[in-house]
């Protein structure tokens, strides 16, 4: 596999980069949804992120990347017990993928040739402890969306079909991207994404030139370009690793909790998922910035990403949800 475009070399799109870094620090935030125009670096960012993340250690040959030999599911028939380092998996879920490929299915090959009932793991197994990337998520078939919802929520993939009864861990960060003009996403799935970002093509000519220049340099001399940016990528990785270590120690005081709650009440977001995500994202940001406590500024910085997609849709309000969040943040956290 050739190397991806370095994450730190992506020009602009700060909100998207921030959201991805936050989920890398705290996977519990629960996924990123990136909506925006074509050719704005959505896929590039996801692939760059993969190269940026610290490797995970997993049992050799385990199809679900188990961290310890005890966690390896029985059906995998893995006899190895030693651990190997592998890159954080970033798995593409292609549009139109069949259910079999996603959840896994009976291994037809083995069944017909050897008469053996074996399970062939799907994409969800491979994505465990990593990222699952869905491009054009808004065009995904409904039944797959339902299925992903289920698994993303429970962290476990249960396969009951064709005489198989299999379950395995499937904890992953869902990253979806798409173009809202081509169709809407179900509110139920929207809500399940922790953060949502809107990206647009940069309109500033200098930014555009810089994007083209960097990409061209990358295409011409991949190795050289990667070398140039390697240091920055590594510095970012170190910050992520450091933030992961300090994450649990970051304090969130009552004042911050009150801020989160007031913001969500003012915006009328359904359920309590808004508050929880807002707090987690703010804490991850605080850890990333090396702060000891979560402050109001942290909450403000992540409010748009964490709440934008949780507003109840009002067909009569012409203002975009980004504006509505910004307006409310100004009012509540003045």
């Amino acid at each position: 596999m050739t190397k991806a475009f370095p994450f730190s070399a992506i020009v602009g799109q700060e909100e998207m980069k921030q959201a991805m870094i936050l989920t890398a620090i705290d996977p519990g935030i629960g996924g990123v949804l990136v909506f925006g125009d074509r050719g704005t670096g959505k896929s590039t960012a996801v692939r760059g992120l993969a190269a940026l993340l610290p490797p995970i250690s997993a049992v050799a040959g385990c199809p679900v990347n188990s961290a310890t030999p005890e966690e390896v599911p029985d059906w995998a028939k893995v006899h190895e017990t030693h651990l190997v380092e592998k890159p954080t998996p970033v798995i593409d879920l292609p549009l139109g993928a069949t259910e079999d490929r996603v959840v896994g299915a009976l291994d037809i090959e083995k069944a017909l040739t050897q008469g053996e009932k074996a399970f062939e793991p799907g994409l969800l197994a491979r994505a465990n402890r990593g990222y699952l990337y869905i491009d054009e998520v808004n065009l995904l078939e409904d039944h797959l969306v339902d299925l992903l919802l289920d698994v993303a929520q429970s962290g476990e993939n249960v396969v009951e079909r064709e005489g198989l009864s299999i379950r395995h861990a499937a904890r992953f960060v869902l990253v979806g991207s798409g173009n809202p003009e081509e169709g809407e996403l179900r509110p139920q799935l929207l809500d399940r994404f922790g953060l949502s970002v809107e990206v647009t093509s940069p309109t500033d000519i200098d930014t555009r030139i810089e994007v083209v220049r960097r990409r061209d340099a990358f295409d011409r001399d991949r190795a050289g370009f990667l070398k140039t940016w390697h240091k920055e990528d590594m510095a970012l990785r170190d910050r992520i690793v450091a933030a992961r270590a300090t994450l649990d120690g970051v304090e969130a005081g009552d004042a911050v909790l009150r801020d989160c709650a007031e913001l969500c009440v003012a915006l009328g977001s359904d359920g309590l998922r808004g508050e929880l995500t807002l707090l987690r994202a703010a804490r991850a940001l605080a850890a990333f910035e090396g702060a000891a406590d979560v402050t109001r500024d942290h909450v403000k910085s992540v409010a748009a990403s964490a709440l934008r997609h949780r507003l109840r849709r009002d067909p009569l309000d012409e203002a975009g949800s980004t504006t509505r969040v910004a307006r409310t943040v100004e009012e509540v956290l003045a």
Binding site: G39, T40, G41, S201, T203, I205, V212, R215
Partner: peptide, 24 residues
């Protein structure tokens, strides 16, 4: 590179793939 990015912008070509392809 600058010229290509600028022309693309003026023509309302929003995708950033286009100027790169033009350079190729």
């Amino acid at each position: 590179i600058e010229e290509m990015a600028e022309v693309a912008h003026k023509l309302g070509v929003r995708s950033l793939r286009a100027p790169l392809q033009a350079l190729a």
